[in-house]
Each structure stands twice: as structure tokens, then as C-alpha cells.
Simulated scan of single mutants.
Amino acid sequence: MNILILTGKFGMGHLSVSKALEEEFKVINKNINVNIVDLIEYVYPNRAELIYKSFSQVVNICPELYNLMYKASEKVEVDMRLPGNSINKKMKNLIDLYSPDIIISTIPMCSRTISAYKAVSNIDIPLVTCVTDISMHIEWVAPKTDYYLVPTLEIKYNLIKNGINGKNIFVVGIPVKQSFKNIRHKESSSNKKNILIMGGGLGLIPNLDEMMNELAKIPNLSITIITGKNKRSYLQFLDKYKNAEIIGFTNEVDKYLSKADIIITKPGGVTLFESIFSETPMFVIKPFLAQEKSNAKYIEANSIGKILWRDREDTTKSLCEFIYDEENLNAMKENMREIKVHTLNSNLTNVLKYLMNEAKYEVNPNYNMSIVI
């Protein structure tokens, strides 16, 4: 069976979800052929780097503009398809190249583009949209999407209000790599605390240098900072603080999460669910992008972390109160376990098996749909 997963590097979350889905298919059957394609790079090979760089600059330098455009697109229908006169020809070539039995999209632009192509070509390949944020935004709705994988029941209900058949919407959380599902979290100690700081794919935590100057004074505090591909930040913090380990890009985030008592991070959708799987309470400092705010509200509503919404809050004081409040941290870990048990526990595997059966791939002729939420 051929699975085609379409994504884009607007942040690293969409690509991370794509790889997590690939792993999940391989768990079902290692012989399944999965191809992950960056649709922007495929359609615009000579301009993709500029497109991504421009997006990153808007997000980091002028987030207010990004939020304004995001909110405006909620009120006015925006054509999210990739532009260009030859786009349908390129979609035909893409499908001819990979011969997919199922197409999965992890980004609205890909869903809209394939949906538009399905409308003019009459292909009947199932299109699955995987929502990668706790977002109610209409951008995720594409007319020719056959199935939706969504993080929460609230998003499922919102899609139903927008005319989507509830039978075609599956609550699976946001897919994370298999390594996060096998984490055995250490018992926390009141004597020594481990903090993981991770800024996501588009930048680090605001005013991190100031916060680190204060954290460096606290005894029995061990800090790990993952700077990702941000080489400037890596060099900035390297060897600067005795109680801090600085890590650049790594594929072993699960290893660091398993040792952490809390994580200070941007509330990206993938990081949110990686933290849930690893049962690591979250400390979020002033979320500013629209999707981050939605994710932060979910964290707060489910009591799995603490959100500092305003600049004037004393970050270091709030952090110390948070990390040494054992009763509160244990309650948050229990809430994370509840989310896993009631919403996420092995459900994604069951859903993918069902979708494969629907695509005429014989996984189990007696497959029981009742186990799928």
C-alpha cells in the first residue's frame, strides 16, 4: 500500500507530525510504503527557501502582522490553494509519481490544494487532513477532504458545526513519534530539579538570557537548553552557565523530556502532546502567535501547565513557585495521564487501520469500527 503524506516547513511541527504518522503506519505493517513530500518544495523548488525564510521573519519580527492576517482569514474566506497556472498539472504528476492509496495532509494549504485538484480531476483517492494545533480555524476545512484526524473533541464538534459528518472525524490527539509513547518518566525529587527549555522550530523563549541569569543563582537546579537549528543562540549560551547543558539540533527530545521535571517552551501543538505523553508539566511565557494562544488555553483548561500571559509578571518567581509545588505538579501529571487514557491511548493506530480498510487495503476483514472514536 502507498501512503503519501504532504506537509510544509512552516515551523517544524507539521513535518514532525508527518514523521510520526509514517512511524505509526510502519508499526501496523513495516512493508507499507510511506512517502513524505514537502509540497511547497515540490511545486516551487527554486522559491521554497525564500518562502520559508519570509514566513519565519514575519513570525519572529512582526508576530502582530501574522496574528492580524490569521484573524482576518477567520472572517473572510481565503483561497489557501497553492497558486500558479500549472498547479493541477503538477498535482497530476505528483500523484502519478507516488500512486497513493491514501493522501494525508498535515497543513491546510496542502489540504486545500489537493481538494481543489480532486474537484477537477474526479480522482477518488481518500484525502485525510490531520489538524496539528488546538485550532478551530476554518482554514482546516477543505471540501474534498474525506476524513479528519483532530486533537480534541472540541475541534470535532466545531467541524460538525461547519457541516462535516461526525463519522468522518477521529479524535487522536496530535501524533507524536513512537519514542514518546515509551517514555518511563523518573520520579521527581524536591532536592534537585531538572528544567528543560525548548523554543520550538521558529525561535527561542522571549528574554531567555535575563531569565537564565536568575536561574543560574538557584542551587540544585539543572537546566538543559535545546536551541535546535538556531546556531546563534547555541553559541550565545554555550559554556555561559555552570548549571546548564546546551544542546543544538537533536532527534532525542524524548530523552531530555524523560529527565525533566518541567519544560519551559512555546506551546506548539506537537510539543504540547509530546509533553502530555512524557507527563512533563509545561511552563509557558507569554504565548503570542494565534495558534500558540489556542494551545495555551488548552493547557490551562486541562491543568497540565502554567501560562504567564503578561509581560509584567515576575517570571523567575512564578517559575520557582511552580517547579517546587510538588502537589500541583503531581496533579498535572495525573491530568496528563487522564488525557492519554481517555483520548489518545492507541487510538491513532486503530484509526489508521480503519482508513486503510476503507481504501481497500485488507488489514483485517473483521475490523471493528466501534473501537474508533
Results as ranks from 00 to 15, higher is better:
residue 222 S to A: 03
residue 201 G to H: 11
residue 145 T to A: 13
residue 154 E to K: 14
residue 238 L to A: 03
residue 208 L to P: 02
residue 149 L to Q: 06
residue 168 N to F: 02
residue 198 M to H: 01
residue 174 I to M: 03
residue 249 F to L: 13
residue 209 D to A: 12
residue 160 I to D: 11
residue 238 L to C: 04
residue 200 G to Q: 03
residue 225 I to V: 15
residue 149 L to A: 11
residue 163 G to S: 02
residue 235 L to I: 06
residue 219 P to Q: 09
residue 176 V to R: 07
residue 243 N to W: 00
residue 247 I to L: 11
residue 194 N to I: 02
residue 207 N to T: 00
residue 167 K to M: 04
residue 182 N to K: 15
residue 172 V to A: 04
residue 173 G to H: 05
residue 147 Y to E: 06
residue 222 S to E: 14
residue 146 D to I: 02
residue 174 I to G: 06
residue 153 L to R: 15
residue 244 A to T: 14
residue 167 K to V: 00
residue 192 K to A: 00
residue 193 K to D: 00
residue 174 I to V: 09
residue 172 V to L: 04
residue 174 I to N: 09
residue 200 G to F: 06
residue 220 N to D: 15
residue 238 L to I: 09
residue 221 L to N: 03
residue 144 K to Q: 14
residue 151 P to I: 09
residue 146 D to H: 07
residue 185 H to A: 08
residue 222 S to W: 00
residue 206 P to R: 05
residue 146 D to K: 05
residue 188 S to P: 06
residue 250 T to N: 09
residue 247 I to Q: 12
residue 189 S to H: 01
residue 163 G to Q: 04
residue 149 L to G: 07
residue 224 T to P: 04
residue 218 I to H: 01
residue 176 V to M: 11
residue 171 V to C: 11
residue 238 L to S: 10
residue 159 L to G: 11
residue 208 L to N: 04
residue 235 L to M: 13
residue 208 L to Y: 05
residue 214 E to L: 09
residue 246 I to K: 06
residue 174 I to D: 03
residue 236 Q to F: 07
residue 223 I to N: 04
residue 246 I to P: 01
residue 230 N to A: 04
residue 195 I to K: 07
residue 148 Y to C: 12
residue 195 I to E: 07
residue 156 K to M: 10
residue 229 K to F: 12
residue 167 K to C: 01
residue 172 V to M: 02
residue 138 I to H: 13
residue 171 V to A: 02
residue 221 L to P: 03
residue 141 V to G: 00
residue 167 K to E: 12
residue 180 F to R: 08
residue 179 S to I: 13
residue 180 F to E: 04
residue 221 L to W: 01
residue 164 I to M: 07
residue 237 F to S: 09
residue 202 L to Y: 10
residue 210 E to L: 12
residue 142 A to R: 04
residue 190 S to W: 00
residue 189 S to Q: 01
residue 159 L to M: 14
residue 187 E to V: 12
residue 154 E to G: 10
residue 177 K to C: 06
residue 238 L to D: 11
residue 164 I to D: 08
residue 148 Y to A: 11
residue 147 Y to M: 06
residue 237 F to T: 07
residue 218 I to C: 01
residue 178 Q to F: 08
residue 182 N to L: 13
residue 184 R to E: 14
residue 154 E to D: 15
residue 175 P to T: 14
residue 235 L to H: 11
residue 227 T to A: 09
residue 210 E to D: 13
residue 208 L to D: 03
residue 188 S to K: 05
residue 186 K to D: 00
residue 199 G to I: 11
residue 138 I to K: 15
residue 182 N to G: 01
residue 220 N to F: 04
residue 232 R to L: 12
residue 224 T to D: 09
residue 207 N to Q: 10
residue 237 F to G: 06
residue 216 A to N: 14
residue 148 Y to M: 12
residue 171 V to R: 02
residue 217 K to T: 05
residue 168 N to E: 06
residue 244 A to F: 01
residue 165 N to W: 02
residue 223 I to S: 03
residue 141 V to K: 15
residue 235 L to D: 13
residue 191 N to E: 06
residue 183 I to L: 10
residue 219 P to R: 09
residue 231 K to D: 14
residue 230 N to D: 15
residue 229 K to P: 00
residue 150 V to D: 08
residue 226 I to V: 14
residue 189 S to F: 00
residue 197 I to Q: 06
residue 246 I to A: 02
residue 212 M to T: 03
residue 161 K to S: 15
residue 163 G to I: 10
residue 162 N to F: 11
residue 213 N to M: 03
residue 225 I to E: 02
residue 173 G to L: 10
residue 235 L to P: 00
residue 212 M to Y: 09
residue 179 S to C: 12
residue 224 T to Y: 04
residue 222 S to D: 14
